[in-house]
Design a protein around this nucleic acid. Structure first.
Lengths: 195, 195
DNA sequence: CAACAGATATTTACAGCGCAAACATTTTGC
DNA sequence: GCAAAATGTTTGCGCTGTAAATATCTGTTG
């Protein structure tokens, strides 16, 4: 049991996922591969097939752990915030902080080419993240007060909105139901100009 | 000259870029490779090296054509729109329409792992796109009027904003200057709740 | 306890990828 | 006309994912 060279790993599935997370953190998305995960765990490069089928299955499982962590990051500081605006700010901070702290993992999580969003392993974690945003969005409106540096911020906010929508749409995160509720023709109706 | 088997192609650089665009449209980002572009043009797989250095150079050049097309799509219908709100809508429609019409190219354009944003070939096209957004963002404010289905739309808008910001930040589109003007702490200050 | 079935891991092989180096051909400049 | 530079090819290497055949362990059943 204490022998390192036994034929069966015993806990390979979570070990491979952890290895993937470690590689993403230490070496980036470019270095993440099925063979690299297997080697890090000390197992042959075909061992993952029994647990994940193919590389997409492994990457989807790694991505699922990312969404669990993203949810935790969004929820962090959510309890101390008294107002809903502060709660929304806290969740947004957590979201962006997660992306900045785990850039490779974050990129993996939203890359359809690498991850299968319909993999059952992703359903729970992704739904949890969406639920937090839904909860914080009820009754929200946009304020008319213009900040001093509103123009620059408006430009970047516009880019965020349109790029975020395009990216999430293209990647398939927004399904047809979601698209119907926020069709392209309705993406930014509630906006106005000062002059 | 009419001989197909001549040693030098004569117009290889743009031909390779066009081949890449064709592959993206017909077969997707998964199938785009240096060798595939070379084969489609009918040239050896090492010929691109003389013109683009490595695969990143080729993909960056392909991406640059994407930004040129994105700019055109955003400008389409911009002239007919009388008000700035309508012009902003038109540009946003164009942006998202481009992403939906060219999903593989759009993904390539914002994937730092595949494209070098600092490649000189990208500077002009990317700046042009940013300029359109900047022009449409001057003086813009958020309206307080809440639409009937505001909650659902607010949720998706929130996701667009936070994901777009995270994605563009992680991918390096927002440089440090931009980040300073829209720090994470200021990403959504001008928002309120109805109750 | 023995034996077999299934799960788990390995080995081997193959096709595709990017790239470096050496070489071949054409074009350009003097 | 000739040398230099630009352009394209060939060959080889290490990396990737995966299919097929094989080996080892585990658990259940007789």
């Amino acid at each position: 049991m204490a022998d390192d060279k036994r034929y069966h790993h015993g806990n390979l599935k979570p070990a491979l996922v952890q290895a993937g997370l470690d590689i993403l953190r230490e070496q980036g998305l470019e270095r993440l591969s099925l063979r690299a995960c297997a080697e890090r765990v000390g197992v042959s490069h075909m061992a993952p097939k029994n647990h994940f089928g193919n590389v997409t299955g492994l990457l989807s499982a790694i991505s699922a752990e990312g969404f669990v962590a993203l949810k935790a990051e969004m929820e962090h500081g959510l309890g101390e915030a008294p107002t809903r605006s502060e709660r929304r700010d806290a969740a947004f901070r957590g979201y962006v902080a997660f992306a900045k702290a785990n850039p490779a993992l974050f990129e993996l999580m939203f890359t359809r080419r690498l991850v299968d969003f319909t993999d059952p392993v992703l359903k729970g974690p992704m739904s949890d993240c969406a639920a937090i945003l839904r909860q914080l969005s009820a009754g929200m409106i946009w304020d008319k007060d213009a900040a001093p540096d509103a123009d620059m911020r408006a430009q970047m906010l516009n880019w965020c909105i349109v790029h975020g929508f395009a990216q999430l749409s293209v990647q398939g995160v927004f399904d047809k139901d979601g698209m119907r509720h926020l069709g392209i023709e309705d993406i930014t109706p509630d906006v106005a100009y000062r002059d």
